[in-house]
Amino acid sequence: MFTGIVQGIAHVESLESRPGLTTFHVKFPPEHLDNITIGASVALNGTCLTVTRQQGDCLSFDAMQETLRLTTLGDLQAGSAINFERAARIGDEIGGHLLSGHIHTTAVVNAIERPENNCVLYFRVPSSWMRYIFPKGYIAINGASLTIGEVTDDTFNVYLIPETLRATTFSDLKVGDRINIEIDSQTQTIVDTLARMGYDRRKS
């Protein structure tokens, strides 16, 4: 499990592509690698991956074809910057909301506004997932727990403060970029339960 509080920015040092599998070699800030072990879980842009090898401050991760298809990891190249979070431990503060590290869908940056000391990001989401997105609800974008702002039929936005921009890769996003989305599990459960009872948001 993860908390949605991005711990820092890592960089893809290199990658190896083989049939059905890509291995990412990712360089981390050394201060975030205390007690890291082979088999540990780390979220890269919100996607839970397993450490397969360590060489100094570089960790390796294998991503199978299905993971590459469902996430934006297949878009990464050598030098790409990524958000990371190590798995939560019992007793850790939950500053965001609980995440599984299992990506539900991807979205596209639709527009960016930069008023003074703020940044507003707009995302276009596949229509089948909009039923779980509500104003003031929770959502995870590239592994960061964020509060949803306004919602339309196929878009939503989030408001970012300077600290969020500093601690994540969001300041580098451009219109047209793809990002990973993990829907809040409690919201999904409630919406699906109500739909089975006949209260389907799509019919309202």
Rank of each mutant, 00 (worst) to 15 (best):
A78N: 13
A78K: 13
S80Y: 07
S80N: 10
A81M: 14
A81C: 13
I82A: 14
I82L: 15
I82V: 15
I82F: 12
I82P: 07
N83E: 12
N83T: 09
N83D: 10
F84Q: 11
F84V: 10
R86V: 07
R86I: 10
R86L: 12
A87H: 08
A87N: 07
A88N: 01
A88K: 03
R89Q: 15
R89L: 15
R89H: 15
R89V: 13
R89P: 04
R89I: 13
R89C: 11
I90R: 07
G91R: 10
G91I: 01
D92V: 03
D92Y: 04
D92S: 03
D92F: 02
E93H: 10
E93S: 10
I94F: 13
G95H: 04
G95C: 01
G95R: 03
G96F: 09
G96P: 10
G96D: 05
H97P: 01
H97T: 02
L98C: 01
L99W: 04
L99G: 00
L99A: 06
L99T: 02
S100F: 09
S100P: 01
S100I: 05
S100Q: 14
G101Q: 03
G101R: 03
H102R: 14
H102L: 12
H102D: 04
H102I: 11
I103N: 07
I103D: 04
I103A: 06
H104K: 09
T105W: 09
T106S: 06
T106A: 06
T106C: 12
A107H: 08
A107K: 08
A107F: 08
V108K: 13
V109N: 09
V109T: 12
V109G: 05
N110L: 08
A111L: 09
I112K: 06
I112D: 03
I112P: 00
E113G: 00
R114I: 07
R114N: 06
P115V: 12
P115S: 12
P115Q: 13
P115H: 13
E116C: 02
E116Q: 14
E116S: 11
E116K: 15
N117K: 14
N117S: 13
N118D: 06
N118H: 11
N118L: 13
C119V: 02
C119R: 15
C119E: 12
C119L: 08
V120N: 08
V120T: 08
L121K: 07
Y122T: 06
Y122S: 09
Y122C: 03
F123A: 06
R124T: 14
V125H: 07
P126I: 04
P126N: 09
P126C: 08
P126G: 09
S127C: 03
S127I: 14
S127N: 11
S127Y: 09
S128N: 14
S128K: 13
S128T: 05
W129I: 00
W129M: 10
W129A: 08
M130S: 00
R131P: 00
Y132N: 02
Y132G: 01
I133F: 10
I133N: 05
F134P: 00
F134A: 12
F134N: 06
P135V: 00
P135Y: 02
K136S: 12
K136T: 00
K136R: 14
K136I: 01
K136D: 08
